[in-house]
Design a protein around this nucleic acid. Structure first.
Length: 841
RNA sequence: GCCGGUGUGGCGGAAUGGUAGACGCGGAGCACUCAAAAUGCUUUGCCCGAAAGGGCGUGUGGGUUCGACUCCCACCACCGGCACCA
């Protein structure tokens, strides 16, 4: 092979020099400044989740921003005006903890980290609009957090209440339900305890139904996994409330059940020991019962969430010495307190049906309570087989939770499960003894934090007026300087000690008052930041309505699946609130979502302690920005994890060098007539141009890269086959290469573009349309099958008709050999691609 | 337990119901070189065969179809989420 002949250009591909060449040019031209884009064009809002400034950028960032940038650059090449902003999620506990550990001010620490990340980001070169940077720790931003809080407060969606909350003993602060993972603090892994505190909440439960219902509209454009996780987390369940009269009490106990059909099987009641109801019921019982209950309650309170939530643990509880009445049967039911019933779900009390609920069954066994079967699974049940006597829970130890037919249930006997649920619920509703109800696993969002580094809550506490919101015109409530404050976590907010800051005159009565010392959960900051990007410097409002209408909602959101519940749920909630308040015209913030996977090393997540940390800066120094970015895109489907041990940034660099050298081989003029060039090469070029769109839009970035490699191989092969440097088809091919490559390797593409005689930036040059005429092949490979098995390949004209193709197939030597002595009884022809000869003996 | 997802060469992964393994990594051989690196060329699913050729192959077992990685049913394995939520 005539090696070297194809690479007439012997210049070396030097990624460092190329990076140094183009960074200052891009700084000057600002090609991705949204204002520089053609106006009037269709728009796309492509948003990457903004980073948290803890240390420098890492491999995970590199993947996320590489993939997000493919999409942003793609739409620009398609002629869209693209908004692709970046900022920093700069408040929060990790930064504060890190600063305290080092004896630094969180503000300085955070700013230093942002500066470092920003410099790294500039070199990594995602196509961001650098004029829209936001940092949530600046008053220019968090002022509007406070504004948002006040709007929720006005609507009764922000409120303060005392209740048992999740408490992290290490961080000395409360946690939202969503921040407790497996009973541990999401941040520091400490076992979470419960504490009774007065805290601020956002009433997200008021939106629970819509947060579930609207997921249907996201199906298909959000990952199925995320939709299902959200649905799971909100945990909507439908059933019925049932009122049970209590002996010696005026008010009935209300319970929630998803199985009203089993009401005849209720043999006792259970209330949550840490509920007010339990306390009240115990108080009305004998001294012995009171003592037992008190001891039990103490034991329960002493347990961590971890211990209490362990489902496998043996049931415990105490009899409260009180009785309720089954509304359907009039039967007398003993009332127990047991910690398997949760105080904050439903009504904190249940009717226990041991035959048809495993937990109730376990409890009944433990305390020798009656078990009564009221649903016969052998009739109408999904699992047939064994007779009822063998399926009895008392024999099997398994409650009968499935389908079946009601037995021993008075007038309801004989009904199926679904009919019975409806019938019993209706019966209860008619008599005012209950009715259909929906319940949610989701709890209100606890947003106050007893820490320094966050948005001050804009409320003033006045002895005379109570809670008084800070008037809008007095915003922002600026976070006081950390100097002189003790930031060590002690369970109360450090801001309370900033006397000069905390003491204020009540805005209502002018009397002495104090600011609320708590700060907001940082997830408040990120719940609406995508709107701030639309008018980041507006100091008169949180966001500009006209800009919102121009850009929002986000067309494509890109980020890690770690935020599948927390951030996305909160952002969806806040968007619905803003919609209801008339501030935005849509109620879902992110029309489409792409979750990139994680970057692993040797099969597990990277960590310093595990010793498998791959440093991004080292990878960039060694292989270059483009090679790392390309590797991220080429590794596989974006949502899959990448094991860095399995991929080859060196291979990526090799490919980039090959592609780059081709730009030096082109010797024709930019305005040459491509139609006069090599047809085979032109076909390859136009096939790529035709396929890029569908591939990128279905996130098959790895396939696009493979197709680019294919094109490079084809170009080289065509050159070997005699396509000259002056052939306009070569220029056409290499230009297409540079344009498509820009999505993955912007430096290399920009340099190629210049070598091809164009002005920067390649990122703003449109993709040429594929020429349909070049997509139609002249000859194709037809396959000949015998009984569905491949036996021969034929080169045929693409226009061949069925009869001609069949004739060729019947004449195929290989096919006839396979047919042997058998007869051909049927022929399926799909011209021009396939013939199947079906035989019989 | 419930919900969601995934199973394809040594590895990462391709494949509108119609040529399984595109593209790459890794391996082997060769060229260039004093040598190496770099670069380039050839080759590379498994088995039988010198070759021609043949057989087997997409987690397992069934099914639909002329034809199944792809569609349907059952099962197995792994990953992720939720989990004493009544």
């Amino acid at each position: 092979m005539a090696e070297g002949s194809r690479t007439t250009d012997e210049a070396r591909y030097d990624f460092a020099a190329i990076q140094d060449r183009w960074l200052p040019v891009w700084d000057r031209l600002r090609p991705f400044n949204t204002a520089n884009a053609p106006t009037g064009a269709a728009r796309k809002y492509v948003l990457d989740m903004f980073p948290y400034p803890s240390g420098d950028l890492h491999m995970g960032h590199a993947e996320a921003y590489a993939l997000g940038d493919v999409i942003a650059r793609y739409w620009r090449h398609r002629g869209f005006q693209v908004l692709h902003p970046i900022g920093w999620d700069a408040f929060g506990l990790p930064a504060e903890n890190a600063a305290i550990k080092r004896g630094l001010d969180p503000r300085g620490w955070t700013h230093d980290n942002i500066a470092q990340q920003r410099a790294s980001m500039r070199r990594y070169a995602p196509s961001f609009d650098w004029d829209r940077v936001i940092q949530t720790c600046e008053p220019e931003y968090y002022r509007w957090n406070q504004w948002l809080f006040l709007r929720l407060y006005e609507k009764g969606l922000a409120y303060r209440k005392a209740s048992l909350v999740n408490w992290c003993p290490f961080d000395q602060t409360v946690l939202a339900n969503e921040q407790v993972v497996g009973g541990r603090c999401e941040r520091c892994d400490t076992i979470v305890t419960k504490k009774k505190l007065t805290q601020w909440y956002f009433r997200i439960t008021e939106y629970a139904d819509r947060l579930v219902d609207d997921l249907a509209g996201l199906e298909g454009s959000w990952p199925a996994k995320v939709v299902s996780m959200q649905r799971n987390w909100i945990g909507r369940s439908t059933g019925a409330d049932v009122h049970f009269a209590v002996e010696g009490r005026d008010e009935p106990i209300v319970v929630y059940t998803t199985r009203p059909d089993t009401l005849y099987g209720a043999t006792f009641m259970v209330v949550a020991p840490d509920s007010d109801l339990a306390e009240e019921l115990a108080a009305g019982a004998s001294a012995t019962v009171q003592a037992e209950f008190a001891a039990y309650l103490e034991k329960v309170r002493g347990m961590s969430e971890m211990e209490r939530m362990n489902a496998g643990r043996e049931k415990t509880g105490v009899f409260l010495g009180r009785y309720a009445t089954n509304p359907l049967t009039g039967e007398r039911l003993p009332i127990w307190a047991a910690d398997y019933v949760l105080a904050d779900y439903g009504h904190g009390a249940i009717m226990a049906v041991p035959a048809h609920d495993q937990r109730d069954f376990d409890f009944a066994r433990r305390f020798d309570l009656p078990i009564r079967i009221v649903v016969d699974p052998t009739r109408g049940g999904t699992t047939g087989g064994a007779p009822l006597a063998e399926r009895d829970p008392r024999v099997t130890g398994e409650a009968l939770v499935g389908e079946g037919t009601l037995v021993a249930s008075g007038d309801f006997t004989g009904l199926g499960k679904a009919e019975a649920i409806a019938a019993v619920t209706a019966w209860l509703a008619e008599r005012g003894l209950g009715g259909p109800t929906t319940n949610f696993r989701l709890r209100d969002w606890l947003i106050s934090r007893q820490r320094y580094w966050g948005t001050p809550i804009p409320i003033i506490h006045c002895a005379a007026c109570g809670e008084v919101p800070v008037p809008d015109d007095q915003l922002p409530v600026v976070l006081p300087d950390a100097a002189g404050l003790d930031l060590q976590p002690r369970g109360t907010s450090p801001l309370g000690a900033a006397d000069a800051w905390a003491s204020v005159a009540c805005p209502r009565c002018g009397g002495p008052a104090r600011r609320d010392p708590d700060t907001m959960d940082t997830f408040v900051d990120s719940s609406w930041y995508f709107l701030r990007f639309l008018s980041p410097h507006d100091d008169t409002q949180a966001f500009d309505r006209a800009e919102v209408e121009r850009w929002a909602p986000v067309d494509q959101y890109v980020g890690g699946v770690t935020h599948a519940i927390l951030h996305l749920l909160y952002a969806r909630f806040i968007t619905k609130v803003l919609h209801d308040l008339g501030y935005v015209g849509f109620s879902e913030p992110f029309s489409a979502l792409l979750n990139q996977g994680m970057v692993l090393m040797d099969g597990s997540a990277m960590s310093k302690s595990r010793g498998n940390l791959v440093r991004l800066s080292q990878q960039l120094d060694e292989h270059g920005v483009d090679a790392v970015r390309l590797t991220m895109a080429f590794a596989g489907p974006p949502e899959d994890d990448i094991d860095w041990a399995d991929v080859s940034p060196a291979g990526s660099a090799k490919f980039l060098a090959r592609a780059w050298r081709l730009a030096g081989a082109v010797e024709s003029d930019p305005d040459g007539e491509a139609a006069l060039g090599d047809t085979a090469l032109r076909r390859a070029t136009h096939r790529l141009l035709a396929d890029v769109g569908p591939l990128v839009e279905s996130f098959k970035f790895n396939v696009v890269v493979a197709r680019l490699m294919d094109l490079v191989n084809t170009i080289r092969h065509r050159m070997d086959a005699g396509v000259a440097s002056a052939d306009p088809a070569l220029r056409e091919a290499v230009e297409a290469l540079a344009l498509v490559l820009d999505m993955f390797a912007p430096y290399t593409a920009e340099d190629m573009w210049q070598r091809l005689g164009h002005e920067p930036s390649v990122a703003l040059a449109p993709f040429p349309a594929a020429d349909d005429a070049l997509l139609v092949e002249e000859t194709v490979t037809a396959i000949v099958q015998v009984d569905g098995k491949l036996r021969d390949r034929l080169q045929v004209a693409a226009t061949i008709d069925g009869a001609a193709l069949e004739a060729l197939a019947r004449a195929s030597e290989a096919a006839l050999r396979a047919v042997g002595e058998r007869r051909i009884v049927r022929v399926i022809v799909r011209a021009p691609r396939m013939v199947n000869l079906v035989t019989a003996p």
